[in-house]
Nucleic acid binder design. Structure first.
Lengths: 181, 181
DNA sequence: TCTTGCTATGCAACTCGTTTCATAGCAAGC
DNA sequence: GCTTGCTATGAAACGAGTTGCATAGCAAGA
């Protein structure tokens, strides 16, 4: 499990409440590690009781109080230790690939519907690539003038961009293959 | 959940026992949908009681009996229905990306260790690409002489190859970035 | 001879992840 | 006035996935 560690990284980049973290997981970190607010709150409680993070109660008027978390020395050391450990082999789950192989066992109408679905899926990822490229222009306009953290964030974003480009090319290949059956 | 559907596809490609399925998930299907033998047995039992598959008891001498499963008409229809449904947005979990961003919060020694780990990880995926390319040469030597099922299997394999190539390029980018910090 | 490994299936316990629901006040729009 | 939506947190239940263990016979190698 690495949700704890993803949270540690996010809180080191900037302290924040569970709610704020959930928002970040929706937006930026969720690109490479997804989590719902339920998971985040549960894991945060465990991390707090293990002393990895501490909460600061912030009373707000008009809004519910929030608890802003920051990483402790223990949390930093835990992260450093995890960084040294080998990357776990990841569990691949590519539903579309299953569907494509499954298309061998349906009729022409079913394959036509799959083709339409792949087209829709492609458009979704084209939009995602566009937001990545926009984010890159916005956040990293001058790649030579970045600090260490920004350079690392940038290389991860480049990974997302490379992935989306590869995916779009492959989806074109899939569409051609389906049409040519 | 799509483990059921991955199993249906695999059993349509060729009927087999839970054990054989587990082997296929280790080797070929596991490239895009992982599962352990525990999951497979459990799901097979549910699928059997729902009438998606039927078992044929095969007594073997010297070895334990096995139950070979094949897909029923109900199973086929279930698969066809699932094929028509939209692809679910997948839960991305890219541990290495978390580690790379985490590297901003460790010292030079920690970053050196991460660099070594990325190098090891790269070698692993280089080997994986080699087995994909070998499999492609072996199973699809003449791309123009394939039936529908093989064409679809081939395009999925091409996806795997494209992914690994993209990943290797990106890992080179990561290594350069880490070295230049 | 002993260990390791393969075929073949399964139980039990646990952790992880998702979904649904609940509370609560405020702001914005219809 | 009513609904929708945002900030902010959490309980409860369920479903999915992992890990460890058990059985059992045979084959191969140290």
């Amino acid at each position: 499990m690495a949700l704890e560690h993803a949270i540690l990284v996010s809180l080191l980049e900037r302290p924040g409440s569970g709610y704020e973290l959930a928002g970040r997981f929706e937006r930026s970190i969720g690109r490479f590690w997804t989590a719902t607010h339920q998971q985040i709150y549960r894991v945060l409680r465990r991390m707090e009781s293990d002393g990895w993070v501490v909460a600061e109660e912030i009373g707000q008027d008009g809004r519910p109080d929030k608890r802003s978390f920051s990483v402790t020395g223990v949390g930093r050391r835990t992260l450093a230790e995890w960084l040294r450990a080998p990357v776990q082999p990841e569990a691949v789950r590519h539903e579309l690939a299953v569907k494509i192989r499954g298309a061998a066992f349906t009729d022409a109408a079913g394959r036509a519907e799959l083709l339409a679905e792949v087209t829709r899926y492609r458009a979704e990822h084209e939009a995602l690539l566009a937001t990545y490229l926009n984010g890159e222009k916005r956040d990293f306009p001058d790649p030579d003038a970045l600090d260490v953290g920004q350079r690392l964030q940038h290389v991860v974003l480049r990974g997302g961009i490379a992935y989306e480009r590869m995916l779009l090319d492959w989806l074109d290949d899939v569409l051609q293959t389906l049409r040519a059956l």
